[in-house]
Design a protein around this nucleic acid. Structure first.
Lengths: 94, 94
DNA sequence: ATAATTTGGTTTATAACGTAAACCATAATA
DNA sequence: TATTATGGTTTACGTTATAAACCAAATTAT
């Protein structure tokens, strides 16, 4: 059986990646709401995905408030797709 | 987003459940080979699935050698199916 | 003005988890 | 009768996920 990329096999990181697969970009607040996670947990997991090169996280300002915008990278997209393929074996799909 | 049953969201336990979904029964040695896991790890994860009521593990003998036979329970089957449905949201499948 | 609260996060502490290594009993083999 | 193989279990440890505590800046209330 194929290995499941441990970086993606984590509920919150997978949720973040899943969202970013479908939108051009998403900011910290949006991701936090959509995933119903705590800010601390989300911050840590975004760091890990960023370090892995799976997403980018740009810290900017909107007016005077900070705003962190996340986007998936090509590398992230590929890893996600490979993960999905590997998981299908486990789930008995296709 | 739905919660992913943490008991099933673990590579080895998921592999075991996946195998048991498709066969009447499977013994320890078979599961160990199929999943390419160590005996220690497999033993622990089988315990957890058993405690959760997702599988049964009968220890018997074949000749004079011990043999542990595992089977999935109805509860386990249901949990697995729910897990698959939840995961589909994350993977952007149907 | 300034105190209190909210916003948008990061850092840190901890408990749970996965995993391998060490171990054990019995059986088969040299 | 040592030695190795089989079929596991127990234990120890590093990694992980997560929440709690924290921080700075902005907003709101007094």
């Amino acid at each position: 059986m194929k290995e499941l990329n441990p970086l993606l096999h984590s509920q919150l990181r997978l949720a973040v990646m899943s969202i970013l697969m479908n939108v051009e970009e998403a900011d910290f607040v949006y991701l936090k709401e959509k995933t119903e996670s705590t800010a601390g947990n989300l911050s840590v997991q975004i760091d890990k995905l960023t370090t892995a090169g799976y997403i980018t996280a740009e810290k900017g300002f909107v007016g005077k408030k900070t705003r962190t915008v996340c986007r998936i990278t090509e590398q992230g997209r590929t890893a996600f797709e490979e993960y999905v393929e590997a998981l299908k074996d486990y789930l008995n799909l296709q």
